[in-house]
Design a protein around this nucleic acid. Structure first.
Lengths: 118, 118
DNA sequence: AATGTTACCTTGTGGTTCTAGGTATCGCAA
DNA sequence: TTGCGATACCTAGAACCACAAGGTAACATT
């Protein structure tokens, strides 16, 4: 219920990280987020709506996001933006993520540096 | 049932990648792999035996690994090493992994570069 | 009138990972 | 010699996230 101690399911939560990161830049709505992730990663990552919407709901339930309805040209959209708690959460996840891929990258690339001592 | 088209569960398979990578350097046994991952990542990643052994079994079943028993000072160990198929699998996973984190990193760091055009 | 796009949503499935156990041998210390 | 910690193997079940696949509805275009 706070910071993870070790690593329960250590590779999860990437969609959440990406979503929080996008919303830090500007408020967006669900459908827009789905396409933004596709676009900015050149289709390398394609999280569907079935991933994005539940994450948005969970984050709002946790107080990390706040939403407001806005109707643009007859289209009703729900715009989400970060709360202070959401900013903290993003910083936290971002740190965890960096540590994680740094560790992995070190393992993958630095295999030959480590002296075996045999 | 072959190469992934888009991204089904795009963040999975990291333990497999780490294990294959270790076994590419030299043959190892399960218990050793568990500690090697802990050690080389300074406890950032701690996959348990409950993760490693099933992965080893699955990889051997798929023909990516071959094993041989060896008894060292009364301790019976099962050493695993890569087959040619395993090497290919490693190269494949490695590529996918690199593309993935490159895309994510670009999203996370390059947020301000992208012109919004509004 | 029909199709495609936008925009929201949920249910159920699936596949990895984790927890939590279990067995057995060895070495060392009490 | 008995007990404990480390070594070394293993598995069954739960947890969990991401996914596929659906469904609704309004707008735009054909």
């Amino acid at each position: 219920m706070s910071a993870r101690e070790t690593n329960p399911n250590f590779m999860n939560g990437v969609p959440e990280l990406l979503i929080l990161n996008l919303l830090q830049q500007r408020e967006m709505y669900g459908y827009e987020i789905v396409q933004a992730i596709r676009d900015r990663t050149s289709n390398v990552i394609a999280v569907g709506e079935g991933v994005v919407y539940p994450v948005l709901h969970a984050l709002e339930r946790d107080g990390a996001l706040k939403s407001r309805r806005k109707t643009v040209s007859g289209r009703s959209r729900i715009y989400y933006s970060l709360t202070p708690a959401g900013s903290r959460r993003l910083a936290d996840l971002s740190n965890t993520w960096t540590n994680l891929i740094t560790a992995i990258q070190k393992m993958l690339t630095g295999g030959q540096h480590a002296p075996i001592l045999r």
